[in-house]
Design a binder for these strands. Structure first.
Length: 208
DNA sequence: TATACGATCACCT
DNA sequence: GGTGATCGTATAC
């Protein structure tokens, strides 16, 4: 019995083969691990966003099946990594059963292992800013197109582990960041984050 | 082929 | 609060 806690479990494909909103919410608190030169770089997920199907105009798959979006139509648990604004990558995890195109964007992590290595890649920025944004975390963890399509339930370079339980009271929803499309896509509360975390990409709006 | 733009970020006022 | 950097992708010609 003693020692069972030391067993580290990966998130299985059943975690991703379900409703994207549930997966996005439940990814909070889980651990993303990147192996680089035998070193573990990791962080706890504190912010996610759901992109759900061809009818979601903010989802890249709303434009149909293309070379870029093809991975979203495939099996769940794979990485969908895209290049944006000419200089950043963003990491998503594919969700829902195969042929339903959806994914969860990993927007921010609380740094754990490998902080010194991350600081080097992030120009010595403070820990709070190492992984506090989708482009930042890919830069800090050396995540780019090479890892597109990777099976996060099997791969040894990039994967997800079960993290410490998260108190449901900490979980907050809001509209997705950076979506400026007329209509409901801009308003759906499909961003999930830990409101009390200093490591999210944007702090909650000031109360007044 | 040509062009407009984006699920961002860092730095500016 | 605002804006430039920089290029793959989608779409229009």
């Amino acid at each position: 019995m003693s020692g069972w806690k030391a067993l580290v479990t990966r998130l299985p494909s059943s975690f991703f083969e379900r409703n994207t909103l549930e997966a996005a919410r439940d990814l909070l608190g889980q651990r993303l691990v990147r192996m680089v030169d035998g070193h573990r770089l990791s962080g706890l997920i504190v912010e996610t966003e759901a992109y759900i199907g061809e009818s979601d105009l903010a989802c890249h798959a709303s434009r149909g099946r293309t070379p870029r979006t093809e991975v979203m139509f495939g099996p769940p648990g794979r990485a969908y990594i895209y290049f944006i604004y000419g200089m950043y990558y963003c990491l998503n995890v594919v969700t829902e059963p195969e042929s339903f195109p959806a994914a969860v964007l990993i927007r921010a992590l609380e740094p754990e292992e490998g902080r010194e290595w991350m600081r080097e890649r992030r120009s010595g920025r403070p820990d709070r800013e190492l992984l506090s944004g989708p482009g930042k975390l890919c830069a800090a963890l050396d995540i780019d197109k090479r890892l597109n399509h990777v099976d996060l339930t099997q791969d040894d370079r990039l994967f997800l582990e079960v993290g410490p339980p998260v108190d449901a009271a900490r979980v907050t929803a809001s509209p997705r960041i950076g979506i400026n499309i007329p209509g409901e896509a801009s308003e759906q509360p499909w961003r999930f984050y830990l409101a009390d975390s200093p490591f999210v990409s944007r702090q909650p709006a000031r109360r007044r």
